[in-house]
């Protein structure tokens, strides 16, 4: 066997330096990461990276900061597996491997000039935050913006400071609901679907962007269709088991589509007849 180095490999990894780690909730931490040598990640909202730790492996993590945030990017990670467990043990100053950005991201050019309704369930806010912050940073390019957020309980809520900022902004219509809460919770209690009927919108020019756990999509989409939002204006980001991140290894396949390459962002029209999608 002869050995050689491959200069251009889809599996090539860049060094990412952890600048800061913040505990968000009991299970989630937020990592600020900068690429080695000041390189920019140059991602689109909705894309993801593969994070590597040598000897442990890699895992797909969605980018939760907007590309308008320069100098570093943010990953919010729940401790659920081998790689994320090891990542949670890392500190500022440590180095991880970064491959990406990967995936298609949200169709920003298509969204510009239109009204936007963001629907985030649970951890869905993590990739969606990238787009929400991008929109807020380029606010005049978009029409009406509403953000609907749902999670299990107030203690699982992420990005507290930002949420209250969104709540205060006049150019954003923000509402939140939790499945259950202690008596001191003053907000809504109920499923995320309960927030949708109350939103006033111009269905012709509204794009809905939905991200949440797999069980959520069917119910939310039904509510959106009931509001007369056209199928072609409903976008969602799907979660699957990504390994190679470049549309080959097969793990993330949804029918004939690869979640990592053709997605993770899909238009409802593209997947509504795909038996494996929703």
């Amino acid at each position: 066997m002869d050995k050689r180095e491959i200069r251009k490999s889809p599996y090539d990894i860049k060094q990412g330096k952890i600048l800061d780690v913040k505990q968000m909730t009991e299970f989630e931490k937020s990592f600020k990461i900068a690429l080695h040598g000041g390189d920019l990640l140059d991602h689109d909202p909705g894309q993801f990276v593969m994070v590597s730790i040598p000897g442990i492996g890699d895992a797909p993590i969605s980018i939760s900061s907007s590309p308008t945030q320069r100098g570093y990017f943010e990953l919010v990670v729940r401790n659920v597996g081998k790689l994320t467990g090891a990542l949670h043990k890392m500190e500022a100053g440590d180095t991880v491997g970064i491959r990406g950005p990967l995936g298609n991201g949200f169709p920003i050019r298509l969204l510009e000039g239109n009204d936007l309704m963001f629907v985030a369930g649970g951890l869905g806010i993590v990739p969606l935050r990238s787009l929400i912050n991008y929109v807020n940073d380029n606010r005049r390019n978009f029409g009406k913006v509403s953000i609907l957020l749902g999670c299990k309980s107030p203690t699982e809520m992420l990005f507290h400071e930002e949420l209250s900022h969104w709540e205060e902004r006049l150019d954003v219509n923000f509402s939140v609901t939790v499945d259950s809460a202690a008596p001191d919770w003053r907000g809504n209690v109920g499923m995320i679907t309960s927030l949708i009927p109350g939103v006033t919108l111009d269905s012709k020019r509204t794009f809905a962007i939905v991200v949440g756990p797999p069980v959520m999509y069917k119910f939310v989409i039904n509510e959106l269709l009931a509001k007369n939002i056209p199928e072609s204006q409903i976008y969602m980001s799907l979660e699957r088991h990504m390994k190679c991140g470049v549309g080959v290894c097969g793990h993330c396949q949804i029918g004939d589509s690869y979640c990592c390459k053709d997605g993770p962002v899909f238009c409802y029209t593209k997947v509504k007849n795909n038996i494996e999608a929703l």
Binding site: M1, K3, R4, E5, I6, S9, Q15, P54, G97
Partner: peptide, 15 residues
Amino acid sequence: YDKRKKEWTPTLYSE
């Protein structure tokens, strides 16, 4: 890879 050097080198073995 080498953890100490924080380096990942894409490699091919072939014949």
